Amino acid sequence: MQVNINGIETRYVLSNEGGGPWLTFIHQLGGDLSVWDQLAGYFRDRYTVLRYDLRGHGRTAASGASFGVANLSHDLATLLDTLGASSSHLVGMSMGGMIAQQFAMDHPARVNTLTLCDTSGGTLPEARAIWDQRAAAARKDGMASLVPATLSRWLTAEFQTAHPEAVEQIVDVLTHTLPEGYAMACEALRDFDARGKLGTIRCPTLTVAGRHDTGTPPAATQAIADAIEGAQFELLDAAHLAPIEQPHRFAALLETFLERPV
């Protein structure tokens, strides 16, 4: 399905066979909603599951101007408004986790629970140049130039060998991401820093990291849990895309977390 969100044609998929509470999945930089296919299938019988493509990713149009993570949070709010959802459980991975953090601060009453995977509370000053380099590479050399290094961060060598079909889909999505959309998203992440505000988040929060994540070390994700009162931290045997490498373990963690009494 396509809908115009803040002037941008946005693709989303809504699975509401279960008719239950809303559960929204937000994908990573260089990804699209298909990364959540398996997990969406697991939860759709009990939840109203929403997935969507971020600006300049998948089949969502690129932004005509630069944007920040706050704009991406506003996109999500507008999408939920359009679909008639007053609140949702949020699951965000990597860039999606940054958007979820921002949304929880912008719209605290609309977040039932918060699950943050392989993400950080902000970019350290010394790491800002990395985002500039990735943006420049996308614009100058195209997305294919980013695939080898990205794949080595995202997935362990063992997973890549054991699941070539999953790797092929992830690479295909990354390669077909709009270079300018990717570059502008890099610049949004470069400027994101919620670390001083995480303590204002009051909703139940689960954070999950991959033990072998070199791009976003587990300590960065654990720091989010440390900053949010009562937050839970879990470590999986995976790299950056931990929910994808360990879908059964992640689904079990998420299911338990979503169903626990508040």
Rank of each mutant, 00 (worst) to 15 (best):
A129P: 00
V49H: 05
S86Y: 13
A135F: 04
L76T: 10
T60S: 09
G121M: 04
N71P: 05
D172K: 07
T175L: 00
V111Y: 15
D106N: 08
T60A: 04
T156V: 14
R134S: 05
P164V: 05
H57L: 01
Q169R: 11
G84S: 06
Q101S: 09
N112K: 11
L72A: 09
V171F: 06
A61P: 01
P164T: 05
S152K: 13
L114R: 11
G96M: 03
F159G: 14
R59N: 01
R46F: 14
W154C: 09
G122A: 09
L116I: 06
Q101C: 12
S66M: 03
D53R: 07
S94T: 13
L80R: 07
A127E: 06
N71Q: 10
A85E: 02
G84T: 11
D75L: 09
S86V: 12
A138L: 02
E168Y: 00
H163F: 14
L155H: 15
L76F: 15
P108Y: 07
N112A: 08
L174I: 05
E126V: 07
H176Q: 13
L174R: 08
E168Q: 02
M93A: 10
D172H: 08
T48E: 00
R153Q: 15
T115P: 00
L72M: 15
R51V: 06
T156D: 13
E168V: 04
E158I: 09
A137H: 01
T161Q: 15
P164D: 11
M105R: 06
W131H: 04
G64A: 15
S63N: 14
H74N: 10
R59Q: 02
A100N: 06
E168N: 08
F159A: 14
H57Y: 02
R55P: 13
T48C: 03
L90K: 04
T113P: 02
P164S: 04
Y47D: 05
L79H: 10
P148T: 10
Q101L: 15
T82H: 10
T175V: 03
L79E: 10
I99W: 11
V167T: 11
A149E: 11
F43K: 10
T123E: 05
S145F: 07
L155A: 15
A135V: 08
A157S: 10
G121K: 08
A109W: 00
P108N: 07
A40H: 07
A65Y: 09
A136T: 09
V147I: 13
F103Q: 13
F43P: 15
Q160R: 15
T123F: 02
M93W: 08
